[in-house]
Computed example of a mutant assay.
Amino acid sequence: MSIKRKLVRIETPKPQPGFLGPDHTKRAVVSGGFSASDPFILLMDDDLDKKDNTPVGGAHPHAGFETVSLLLEGEVGDAAHTMKSGDFQIMTAGSGIVHTETIDKAATMRLLQLWINLSKKDRLATPRVQDLPLEHAPTLNERGVHIKVYSGSLAGLTSPIENYTPMVIADVTIEMDVTTTLDIPANFNTFLYVLDGSVVIGEDEKGLNKYQVGWLDMGTDNAASELKLTAGKEGVCFSLYAGKPTGDTIVSHGPFIADSQEDIMRFYSEYRQGKMKHISRVPESQRLSW
């Protein structure tokens, strides 16, 4: 018998000034309290409406985790690769990498960027980057339900993306008053982030509105579970994130995630000594395009 998932926690992240200047607004969709959000470390909703040609951003390091980027609007990237609206990318920072995110012209951009934990056995994985453009994302359009699966499997669709940490990431649009059910592993920590409209969730019919984050209850085994969803009067568009917890504790400092403070210090030392390669210089075998 399938478990019926319920909405157990609702959060409404507030808009805050971003680090890219006065034209940058950010919302911390996931932040802090890793024991509750495992395997998700943080998720930022970055909204940029840049009105001049002054460069912002730049090169910076990461290590010990993966960055997972879903570009909702605009363009972002570097000389090696440019992401466009609807594109998806996972960068495995692993043992340490440098990458560049620079915007040097007037631009409108909205980006969801997730940090997802690498378990202890994969913490120092060989860095790699995987790109899945919008046109190659598995897609379902059926009876008022529109789903794009970027990672994992959902609604009979499976993404080609390779994951160290099992996870499902999908863009879901449901037309007004349509009800659907999604199957998600019961032991995956799961949340929805509403980008537009509203949705009623579960048998107890709790509502979730634009810019709200809804966390589901979670089972203890790999049984199937069902998530019942009914779109509101304007329909709904949301991003779905579900991941299998690693069960680890982590140490976070700046751009690095580690198992100890000593590891953090080692990452900083390696970066200062120039031992971390730029992601654009890794071998082609570590650059996967689907």
Rank of each mutant, 00 (worst) to 15 (best):
M1R: 14
M1Q: 09
K4N: 14
K4H: 15
K6I: 08
L7A: 11
R9V: 05
R9K: 12
R9L: 14
P13R: 04
H24N: 14
K26H: 09
K26G: 13
R27F: 07
A28W: 13
S31F: 12
G33N: 13
F34T: 00
L43M: 15
L43Y: 04
K51G: 12
K51L: 13
V56E: 09
H60L: 03
E66V: 11
V68N: 07
S69V: 09
L71T: 08
L71V: 05
L72M: 12
G74H: 06
A80R: 10
G86V: 06
F88L: 05
T92W: 01
S95E: 01
E101T: 02
D104M: 01
A106K: 12
A106R: 03
M109D: 04
R110D: 12
L111N: 12
L114I: 07
L114C: 10
L124P: 03
D131N: 14
L132F: 13
P133F: 07
P133K: 14
L134R: 15
L134G: 08
N141D: 15
E142L: 14
I147Q: 07
I147E: 01
V149S: 08
Y150K: 12
L154W: 05
E162Y: 12
N163E: 15
Y164E: 09
A170L: 03
V172F: 06
E175R: 06
E175Y: 02
D177H: 06
T180Q: 02
L182P: 00
P185I: 00
Y193F: 09
L195A: 02
G197Q: 01
K206I: 06
G207N: 15
N209L: 14
G214A: 06
W215N: 01
D217A: 07
D217H: 04
M218H: 12
M218Q: 15
T220P: 02
G232E: 05
E234L: 13
G235S: 09
C237P: 10
S239E: 15
T249I: 12
H253R: 12
E262L: 05
R266I: 09
R266C: 00
K275R: 12
K277G: 08
S280R: 11
E284S: 13
R287V: 03
